[in-house]
Each structure stands twice: as structure tokens, then as C-alpha cells.
Amino acid sequence: QEELVKAFKALLKEEKFSSQGEIVAALQEQGFDNINQSKVSRMLTKFGAVRTRNAKMEMVYCLPAELGV
């Protein structure tokens, strides 16, 4: 569980995922086979993730800066 949270936060820091499906796929690539869209959705809510525009003006998920991840 701890490893999943770390990987999840690291992915969001990249600010390149525009959908929950993309986050699920990226986590599965890292070996988290039991991850699915509903789990990702709950984690996004739990950590207060928001959708914002990145440098390329794409809408992407990211974590609020005050979490200091």
C-alpha cells in the first residue's frame, strides 16, 4: 500500500496524466496489478488532487503543492 501511494504521488508530480485511465495504466506498468479506475479515483480524492493546466496547456492531474511530495 505504501509503495502504491509513493508511485501514485510520483506519477502525479510529472503532471502529464489527463485521465484516470492513464494513471491506472501507468501504475499497472509499474507492477501494481490490482489497481483500477475506482481505486485511482479514491486516491485522487484522498490526496486532494486537482486538474490543472501544465506547461503545454494540457489539462492534467496534479497534487496541491502544500502536500510537499
Rank of each mutant, 00 (worst) to 15 (best):
Leu63Lys: 02
Val40Tyr: 01
Gly21Leu: 14
Val50Ala: 07
Leu67Trp: 05
Gly48Lys: 09
Cys62Ala: 15
Phe17Glu: 01
Ala55Asp: 12
Thr52Cys: 15
Val69Gln: 14
Gln28Pro: 00
Ala7Ile: 07
Val69Leu: 09
Ser19Ala: 07
Leu4Lys: 01
Gln30Trp: 08
Tyr61Glu: 01
Phe17Gln: 02
Ser41Gly: 09
Glu14Phe: 06
Ala25Val: 10
Val69Gly: 14
Phe17Met: 11
Lys6Leu: 12
Met59Gly: 03
Cys62Thr: 15
Val40Leu: 05
Glu14Lys: 08
Leu27Phe: 01
Ala65Gly: 12
Asn34Phe: 13
Leu44Phe: 03
Asn36His: 06
Thr45Asp: 11
Glu58Ser: 04
Lys16Asn: 05
Ala49His: 02
Glu3Lys: 13
Asp33Glu: 13
Ala25Gln: 13
Leu4Phe: 06
Gln1His: 12
Ser41Gln: 13
Leu12Phe: 04
Gly21Arg: 14
Asn36Tyr: 05
Arg42Thr: 11
Lys56Asp: 11
Gln1Ile: 11
Gln30Cys: 06
Gly68Ser: 10
Arg51Leu: 15
Arg42Asn: 11
Lys13Thr: 08
Glu3Phe: 11
Val50Pro: 02
Leu44Glu: 01
Thr45Val: 13
Lys16Met: 07
Val50Tyr: 11
Asn54Tyr: 03
Glu66Tyr: 08
Thr45Met: 11
Val69Pro: 15
Val24Asn: 02
Lys9Trp: 11
Glu58Trp: 03
Val40Pro: 00
Pro64Asn: 05
Arg42Ala: 14
Val5Gln: 09
Ala65Val: 11
Lys46Pro: 00
Phe32Asp: 00
Glu66Ala: 08
Phe8Ile: 05
Val40Cys: 02
Asn54Phe: 02
Glu14His: 06
Gly68Arg: 05
Asn36Met: 04
Gly68Met: 07
Glu29Asn: 10
Val40Gly: 00
Val50Arg: 10
Asn54Cys: 03
Gly68Tyr: 03
Phe32Tyr: 08
Lys46Asp: 14
Ile23Glu: 00
Val24Trp: 04
Phe32Arg: 01
Lys6Asp: 08
Glu15Gln: 10
Leu27Asn: 00
Met57His: 13
Leu12Val: 04
Lys56Phe: 10
Ile35Gln: 02
Leu4His: 01
Leu44His: 00
Val40Asp: 00
Gln37Asn: 10
Asn54Gly: 05
Asn36Pro: 05
Val24Arg: 05
Met57Val: 03
Val5Arg: 08
Lys6Ala: 14
Glu14Asp: 07
Glu14Leu: 15
Gly21Ser: 13
Ala26His: 10
Lys56His: 10
Gly31Ala: 02
Ala26Cys: 04
Leu12Asn: 00
Lys46Phe: 15
Val50Met: 09
Leu63His: 02
Val40Arg: 00
Lys16Thr: 08
Lys56Thr: 07
Glu66Cys: 15
Arg51Cys: 15
Gly31Arg: 03
Gln37Met: 12
Ala49Asp: 02
Glu2Pro: 11
Val50Trp: 05
Val40Lys: 00
Ala25Glu: 09
Ile23Lys: 00
Ser18Asp: 03
Glu14Pro: 02
Glu15Phe: 07
Phe8Asn: 00
Asp33Arg: 14
Gly68Asn: 11
Leu63Pro: 02
Arg42Phe: 13
Ala26Asp: 03
Leu27Gly: 00
Gln30Thr: 04
Gln28Val: 11
Met59His: 05
Lys9Tyr: 14
Glu29Lys: 12
Gln37Cys: 06
Arg53Gln: 12
Ser38Pro: 09
Phe8Pro: 00
Met43Glu: 01
Met59Tyr: 14
Val5Met: 13
Gln1Trp: 14
Ala26Phe: 11
Ala49Lys: 02
Ala55Tyr: 05
Ala25Ser: 11
Gln28Tyr: 08
Pro64Leu: 04
Ala65Gln: 12
Arg42Val: 12
Glu3Gln: 12
Ala49Leu: 02
Ala26Pro: 00
Cys62Arg: 07
Asn54Trp: 02
Ser41Tyr: 09
Glu29His: 10
Ser41Leu: 09
Val69Ile: 09
Lys13Leu: 13
Met43Val: 01
Lys6Val: 10
Lys16Ser: 08
Asn34Leu: 08
Lys46Val: 11
Lys46His: 13
Phe47Gly: 02
Ser41His: 11
Leu27Tyr: 00
Met59Val: 09
Lys39Ala: 13
Ala7Gly: 02
Ala10Trp: 08
Gly31His: 04
Gln30Gly: 06
Cys62Lys: 10
Ile23Val: 03
Met57Leu: 11
Ala55Thr: 08
Ser19Phe: 09
Leu63Gly: 02
Lys46Gln: 15
Met43Arg: 00
Leu63Arg: 02
Lys46Trp: 14
Ala7Lys: 06
Pro64Trp: 03
Arg53Leu: 15
Arg53Asn: 07
Ala25Gly: 06
Arg42Met: 14
Glu22Leu: 06
Phe47Asp: 01
Ile35Trp: 02
Gln37Trp: 08
Ala65Asp: 14
Phe47Tyr: 12
Ala49Glu: 02
Lys6Trp: 10
Lys13Ile: 10
Gly68Gln: 12
Arg53Glu: 08
Gln20Glu: 15
Cys62Met: 13
Gly68Trp: 04
Phe32Lys: 01
Gln20Phe: 08
Ile23Gly: 01
Lys39Met: 14
Lys6Arg: 14
Gln20Ser: 11
Ser38Ile: 12
Arg51Ala: 05
Ser18Tyr: 06
Leu67Cys: 11
Met59Arg: 04
Leu12Ser: 00
Met43Asp: 00
Glu22Pro: 03
Glu15Pro: 09
Gln1Asp: 14
Ala7Ser: 07
Glu66Leu: 06
Ala25Tyr: 09
Ser41Phe: 08
Arg53Met: 15
Glu2Arg: 10
Ile35Asn: 01
Gln37Arg: 15
Phe32Cys: 02
Glu66Gly: 09
Leu4Arg: 01
Val5Tyr: 15
Val60Gln: 02
Glu66Arg: 06
Ala26Ser: 06
Ala25His: 10
Asp33Cys: 09
Val24Pro: 00
Arg51Tyr: 15
Glu15His: 08
Lys46Arg: 13
Ala49Ile: 05
Ser41Trp: 09
Ala10Phe: 08
Lys16His: 06
Arg51Asp: 02
Ala10Cys: 07
Ser38Met: 13
Glu58Lys: 09
Val69Lys: 09
Glu3Ala: 14
Lys56Met: 10
Gln20Tyr: 08
Met57Ile: 03
Ser19Gly: 06
Pro64Met: 04
Ala7Tyr: 06
Ala7Arg: 06
Ile35Ala: 06
Asn36Lys: 07
Arg51Met: 15
Glu29Cys: 06
Leu44Asn: 01
Val50Asp: 03
Thr52Ala: 14
Gln30Pro: 00
Glu22Met: 10
Val24Lys: 05
Gln37Lys: 15
Ala49Asn: 03
Gln28Glu: 08
Leu44Pro: 00
Cys62Asp: 02
Glu22Asn: 05
Val50Cys: 13
Phe8Lys: 00
Leu4Tyr: 04
Glu29Val: 09
Met43Phe: 06
Leu44Gln: 01
Tyr61Phe: 07
Leu67Arg: 10
Ala10Pro: 02
Ser41Cys: 05
Gly21Glu: 15
Gln30Phe: 07
Val24Asp: 01
Gly31Met: 03
Lys13Arg: 15
Leu67Phe: 06
Asn34Ser: 12
Lys56Gln: 12
Glu22Val: 04
Gly21Asn: 13
Glu29Leu: 12
Val5Ala: 10
Glu15Gly: 08
Glu2Met: 13
Phe32Leu: 02
Glu15Ile: 05
Gly48Phe: 04
Phe17Ala: 04
Ser41Ala: 14
Leu12Gln: 00
Thr52Glu: 07
Ala55Val: 08
Ser19Arg: 10
Ser41Ile: 08
Phe17His: 06
Asn36Asp: 13
Val40Trp: 01
Phe32Thr: 00
